[in-house]
Design a protein around this nucleic acid. Structure first.
Lengths: 243, 243
DNA sequence: CGCTCGTTTGAAGCTTATCAAAGTCAGTGG
DNA sequence: CCACTGACTTTGATAAGCTTCAAACGAGCG
């Protein structure tokens, strides 16, 4: 079992295209520094200009959009293996924050090293570009959920998405994955009030669509949940193809 | 006045970083084929595997997510100069459709030519990557609007975003731009019912935040509208920086 | 044991959806 | 030139989904 901070990133890449041993070695050779965060700690601040991109090694993080009335919206969720702030070296200034939703471990890679990597290995460059494109595709699926689906279907969709992503990096199996975030955090992902989120969740538990007790989410019948949430796995691009 | 289909794309790029004459020439030299579409015509179908990426030359297009109940959600709006389906050569299969919201002209560029371009000109490659990253950033802003803002603020935000983007490519000036889409289309962008969209629009007209009659949107006081919609121009990355 | 954080419950109110129909306007054919 | 057509906007009435406020409950922890 590899303990490299890049192990899960490589799994994420390999789920979309073959990665040669040389390419994998190039990734593994990236210099990095590790850092840990407590739950609810800010990892990258809105308005900052990062000089490193952060790769999530352990834990769950969210992209946080803060509003003037004090409320907030999570605009993306990231899991281990996600290059959370990969595009930071293109976008320069953060228009949102990155927060630890659970205790986290993060590997920082300086932008110049990323730049060198994509220059030296064009295929890896395209694969990293692909990762940002997939993030965007997931975002569009979220928009469809927020605009046109009921709260329950939206939640179902989110759980299906997370399950498949977790499975790719070895963090989900047999319909079960750890997702130790509070219902308040969920409500900020769905754009709902905590009270309504709680009620929707109870209803889905009653209907047997999910069992969610404490840290663990259990999906008894993935197909049923996907059907209910109209989840289309296409947006995750989980097919090995030459890219 | 250039009539090249790439003229507005170059403006879009130059708003974010300096583009050398050589780079511009490389873009202008891309082989393409032009095609026109009528309003509401489908440009790229959900589930298809495009072998070309489409650059919007004229008109307005939307990314369409269709739901099982027959409703639909627009997950992104594109204006002339946008490389609508740039990431198509990475994502392979469309998980959503692209529709003409007004009569359109589109330039198709075959993926191999794009591939050659980004291989030969790494800086241009990064700039195209940047464009897809900006699309994603705009998508995240939409998510924040849908989740946590009122319908009126959401609409204000959308109009501010469109105004600035149009301005960059020379299609907006003095607070005015053409946006000849129906209120039904707007409601599919905002995730609202047409009836509610109409009422919100009337209210905003009454308050003097926008004058929208027929094809033309007029923003009398951009700062006031941006303040009301909590619009943060940061997500558009409209700053020339080395990328 | 009491404290703190998170979940759950209840009740009232507001935003937005839905259904149905009328009004408006540009374009078309008689 | 006028009536007709079809697409879009506007209005009204009612209902549903979700929010808000407030408080109780429960589990883990010092």
């Amino acid at each position: 079992m590899s303990t490299s901070p890049f192990a899960r990133l490589l799994k994420t890449l390999e789920a979309r295209d073959h990665i040669s041993p040389l390419e994998a070695a190039r990734v593994e050779a990236l210099p990095f520094r590790l850092k840990s965060y407590k739950r609810n700690e800010e990892i990258i601040a809105e308005g900052s200009r990062p000089t490193e991109s952060c790769l999530l090694v352990e834990g769950i993080v969210g992209r946080m959009n803060y509003l003037q009335d004090g409320s907030r919206q999570v605009s993306a969720v990231h899991i281990p293996g996600d290059f959370v702030d990969l595009h930071g070296f293109l976008l320069k200034v953060m228009d949102h924050g990155i927060n630890a939703l659970t205790p986290c471990r993060v590997a920082y890679v300086a932008h110049p090293h990323l730049r060198d990597l994509v220059d030296a290995e064009p295929h890896l460059g395209r694969m990293l570009w692909l990762l940002t494109a997939i993030d965007a595709a997931v975002g569009r699926a979220w928009i469809a959920c927020m605009g046109r689906r009921s709260a329950a279907r939206h939640l179902a969709h989110l759980l299906c998405e997370l399950y498949l992503r977790m499975e790719v990096v070895g963090l989900a199996k047999d319909g079960i994955f750890e997702f130790p975030v509070s219902q308040v955090d969920i409500s900020d992902m769905l754009g709902l009030s905590p009270v309504h989120t709680n009620r929707v969740l109870q209803e889905m538990r009653q209907q047997g669509l999910v069992a969610w007790k404490g840290r663990k989410v259990e999906i008894k019948d993935f197909d049923a949940l996907a059907e209910f949430g109209e989840f289309n796995p296409l947006c995750l691009n989980l097919v090995q193809e030459p890219r």
